[in-house]
Design a protein around this nucleic acid. Structure first.
Length: 225
DNA sequence: ATACCATGAACAG
DNA sequence: TGTTCCTGGTATC
């Protein structure tokens, strides 16, 4: 097993994490809705809180994983099989946006559903899909095949920059103040439309569209179909 | 004390 | 489409 094993490297593909151990085993972790890591300082292992699925220790830190959707031990082929199911990950150097574009182009499904489909683009969740579509003025209900080439390129660009910003800040950041009328941004505002009652840009009542069984927030004024 | 909801996804039918 | 799994914060009584 991996008790006492050295961790060689960690890899992310979309929302999936892979821990490469020195004995060639690979841990596969997906946080899902509830997964979280708890970091504790000091070399003394803290009492686990709740059900701890994986514990990693170095000389001076203990990291406990709880609540993940996936926490399994496998090998490189297992990792390859998971990655093969995923669309391009905007955060990875090897990402080929054309793979995502060609799927969106030939689909009549709503773009809001396509962006949440990890086989189309890997890594977007319910917050980013709403915010990416808002920034580009596209209704989540717009069929994929009715998005222009310019819009596809813009969606990819927005997605990439939002995700990079998220990595930098270690939290979801989607607001660019430059996209707002001056003075509109209040303290505590963290999204344009996600989980809001009113559009941060124009104040219109936010619409909630059920897509793929998840609530998709959008502004009917800023994002005409 | 209890209910409900959430940045997710697999599975049954 | 609905059910299930996983956890924790907030609302409701």
């Amino acid at each position: 097993m991996i008790d006492g094993m050295r961790l060689d490297r960690v890899e992310a593909a979309g929302k999936h994490l892979f821990y490469w151990w020195a004995n060639d085993l690979v841990s596969h972790v997906h946080l899902g809705l509830f997964g979280r890591f708890r970091l504790a300082d000091g070399r003394l292992a803290p009492d686990p809180i709740g059900a701890v699925r994986m514990r990693m220790r170095t000389r001076d830190v203990t990291i406990d994983l709880s609540g993940p959707t996936v926490c399994e031990l496998g090998n490189e082929p297992m990792r390859d099989a998971v990655v093969a199911r995923l669309g391009p990950d905007p955060l990875r150097d090897d990402a080929d946006p054309e793979r995502a574009f060609s799927r969106i182009r030939r689909s009549r499904l709503p773009i809001g559903a396509l962006l949440l489909d990890q086989r189309v683009i890997a890594g977007l969740g319910n917050v980013y899909r709403a915010e990416v579509l808002f920034v580009n003025g596209i209704s989540p209900l717009r069929p994929g095949n009715e998005c222009s080439e310019d819009e596809l390129a813009a969606i990819w660009h927005t997605t990439t920059s939002m995700l990079r910003k998220g990595v930098e800040e270690n939290r979801i950041v989607t607001i660019d103040p430059a996209l707002l009328p001056s003075g509109r941004l209040r303290r505590g505002d963290s999204t344009f439309v996600y989980h809001r009652d009113r559009c941060l840009r124009c104040g219109a009542a936010i619409q909630i569209v059920e897509l793929d069984g998840r609530a998709c927030y959008c502004c009917p004024v800023c994002q005409p179909v």
